Amino acid sequence: MKRLLVSLIAALVLAFPIAIAIGRNPWFGRWMAYGHGWDAFDPLLNFFGVVGVEGEGDVVVNTLLIVSFVLSFALAWFIFGAVKRIRQRKAQ
């Protein structure tokens, strides 16, 4: 339970910086600029019935935040487990 709680808190803290890092990455900008990104987001845009530029941006930003939260949770879960194993090995 402790590992889950610590991982969730760390994921909440790290989600925004990771989303910013993904959004500012040059490959992401090229991917979106050449239209491949919009092709990938097309099913989500159709699912939510988005019409207009503002709605498209909201879907992209929210997707980035969800992906960054999942990545940060996995990273925090892995680091917490690794630290726990290292402490157990040192205790023995």
Rank of each mutant, 00 (worst) to 15 (best):
A40K: 01
E56F: 05
R3A: 06
A40H: 04
R89S: 04
P17M: 09
T63D: 02
A91Q: 11
A10H: 01
E54G: 03
R3D: 06
P17T: 11
I20S: 06
L71T: 12
M1L: 04
N25Y: 14
R3E: 06
I9P: 02
F16E: 11
I18F: 08
F73G: 15
V13D: 00
F73T: 13
P26K: 03
R87K: 09
L64T: 05
V6C: 01
F28E: 08
A76C: 14
A76I: 15
P43C: 08
L12R: 03
V83N: 02
V61H: 05
L45A: 10
G81L: 14
F80D: 15
R30P: 02
G49A: 08
F48V: 10
L65D: 04
H36L: 08
G49Q: 08
F78S: 15
P26Q: 04
L45S: 03
N25L: 13
A76T: 14
I18L: 11
F48D: 06
A15T: 11
I18M: 07
W31G: 00
P26E: 03
L75V: 15
R87D: 15
A76V: 14
P43S: 08
S72A: 13
F48K: 08
T63H: 09
G57E: 12
A11G: 12
G37M: 00
V59D: 03
Q88N: 09
A76N: 09
S7Y: 07
A19N: 07
T63L: 14
R24G: 07
L75D: 14
R85N: 13
A11T: 04
R87G: 11
T63V: 11
G37I: 04
I66V: 13
L14Q: 05
I79F: 15
N25K: 05
F69D: 14
F78Q: 09
A15W: 00
I66C: 06
F28T: 13
N46P: 00
A21C: 04
R89Y: 02
F28M: 10
N46A: 12
V83I: 12
M1R: 02
R87H: 07
P17R: 07
R89G: 02
E56Q: 15
W38L: 06
R87N: 14
F41Y: 03
E54Q: 08
R24V: 06
